[in-house]
């Protein structure tokens, strides 16, 4: 099981999937040509990460903008993380939004209400 780093592009976020640190971090924009394909590789990594016995993950989202296909992928992302959250595994989510970015805040809020795993909404100033 290896850590993976995907470089940021104009239309895809950087993705740091860190086995030793036990975290996954996304940063940047997300409007790829095929969002479902892009996020599937991340979901596969998470499945493999837990299959090899990991008991916790910290998921950090520092997204600037994402399109509606990516929003659907974010929901799938949360659903996957929630699936692993339970008695023997600890999932925490940190959702960053730029101060005054009500779109990013509101979608984060909706996720935080929908899912029972610990979910922090954190503002930052660009």
């Amino acid at each position: 099981m290896e850590s993976v780093f995907l470089e940021k592009t104009t239309e895809t976020p950087s993705v740091r999937m860190d086995v030793q640190g036990g975290f996954i971090e996304l940063e940047g924009n997300s409007y790829p040509e095929n969002a479902f394909e892009f996020y599937q590789q991340i979901f596969d990594w998470i499945d493999a990460y837990f299959a090899q016995g990991a008991d916790r993950i910290r998921a950090v989202f520092r997204l600037n903008y994402f399109n509606t296909s990516s929003a659907k992928c974010m929901l799938n992302f949360m659903t996957l993380l929630q699936k692993y959250h339970g008695d023997d595994k600890m999932i925490t989510v940190e959702w960053y939004y730029e101060e005054d970015d009500d779109d990013m805040l509101e979608i984060g809020k909706a996720f935080s209400v929908d899912f029972t795993m610990p979910f922090q909404l954190l503002s930052f100033v660009d």
Binding site: Y31, Y65, E99, D103
Partner: peptide, 17 residues
Amino acid sequence: TGVRFKKVFGVFIELIQ
């Protein structure tokens, strides 16, 4: 336009896609 730019950008991307 600062943070309001994201709305213009978001609508633009959605419409062109």
